[in-house]
């Protein structure tokens, strides 16, 4: 059986991609097979900003590792810029950039400048080009005046900006960003999102994974929702939201609400789902319901006497609501 040639307009082409992990117990006895990816298909066209979203353990990082040639698939095919991830290792690596979220991936005991020089040589960037490109990149990510400092003194946000500069050092056509804003404060995350927009404007293709739905909604042209190793939906954020057209969201900000109250809300008829953040002093509770405002009186009367509603709004469902429906069903 011959497989069809990859489409030259596709930056990423994935067919039936499957990956199993075999883990042995410490004493070598029991083996456990985890199917991290279970035959996924998708394509990313050149110049597109494509999002991969899904809960913990869904298989996002596994997908990225296969596409960046760091891991081999158990079955299926993956082509990057028309090249086979199993065969054209080094050609692919030269043409892609990778950002993994989190603290890892930099040499902390040396400066940002040292890191960028090292990685530019590793990627075979012409040294004369590197001499102008490195300061330009440092300036672009706002690290120019601290370029000589050891990376260990950097804040999380600065490190992540350096990661972006590092991933761009060899001017890749295609970027893989695995949770690039994880662990950043809102300002730091916004800086990264602005850089992602800039990269897109320059015509780079981007594959992004994230846990933050508003981020996917704000940035991505198309989003694949992945759950337990399978793609359960793939569309534009607007189209995905149509999946929850039948519901509206009552958003409450409350004072003194407890898990008890949330449970009571869940028991109400016509409540599809309740998502609550109870940790802070002011709680945010989102009640999904097809009744919309008509449910409001019941929501209010379920409130215990010692709790207060600060404000309440009826909202259009967001990508998050659509996402929750997809991954929970």
């Amino acid at each position: 059986m011959s497989t069809p040639r990859p489409d030259p307009n596709h930056a990423v082409e994935v067919r039936g991609l499957t990956r199993e992990y075999t883990t042995r117990s410490f004493f070598g006895g029991v083996t456990k097979v985890t199917k991290a990816l279970d035959g996924i298909d998708f394509t990313v066209t050149k110049g597109e900003l494509f999002g991969l979203i899904g809960p913990n353990g869904a298989g996002k990082t596994t997908t990225i590792k296969i596409l960046t040639t760091l891991l081999t698939q158990t079955a299926g095919e993956a082509y990057i810029l028309g090249l086979d991830v199993r065969k054209d290792l080094y050609e692919i690596r030269r043409r892609i950039g990778i950002v993994f979220g989190g603290e890892r991936g930099l040499y902390n005991r040396v400066s940002a400048l040292d890191n960028l020089h090292y990685f530019s040589d590793l990627y075979g960037v012409d040294p004369t080009v590197a001499r102008s490109r490195i300061p330009e990149l440092l300036k672009a990510v706002g690290l120019a005046d601290r370029a000589d400092e050891r990376v260990e003194k950097y804040s999380r946000g600065m490190k992540q900006r350096l990661h972006i500069a590092k991933a761009l050092i060899h001017d890749p056509e295609l970027l893989f960003l695995d949770e690039p804003t994880i662990g950043l404060d809102p300002g730091g995350a916004r800086d990264i999102r602005n850089m992602i927009r800039d990269m897109k404007k320059q015509g780079k293709t981007i594959l992004l994974t994230t846990h933050y739905m508003f981020e996917a909604e704000e940035l991505c042209q198309r989003v694949a929702v992945i759950s337990k190793g399978k793609i359960v939906a793939l569309d534009t954020p607007a189209e995905l939201k149509k999946g929850v057209r039948d519901i509206a969201v009552i958003e409450l900000r409350t004072y003194g609400a407890t898990a008890d109250y949330v449970d009571r809300l869940k028991q109400l008829p016509n409540v599809v789902r309740v998502v609550a953040e109870l940790d802070s002093e002011v709680q945010t509770i989102r009640v999904q319901t097809p009744l919309g405002a008509d449910l409001l009186s019941q929501v209010v009367s379920a409130l215990p006497p010692d709790a207060k509603i600060i404000d309440r709004t009826i909202k259009e469902p967001t990508l998050e609501d659509a996402y929750l429906r997809l991954v929970e069903e």
């Binding site: 075979g124 960037v125 080009v129 102008s132 672009a140 001017d171 320059q202």
Partner: peptide, 9 residues
Amino acid sequence: LDDLTPGKR
């Protein structure tokens, strides 16, 4: 990130 020197190998 505009106007970066193009990366040459």
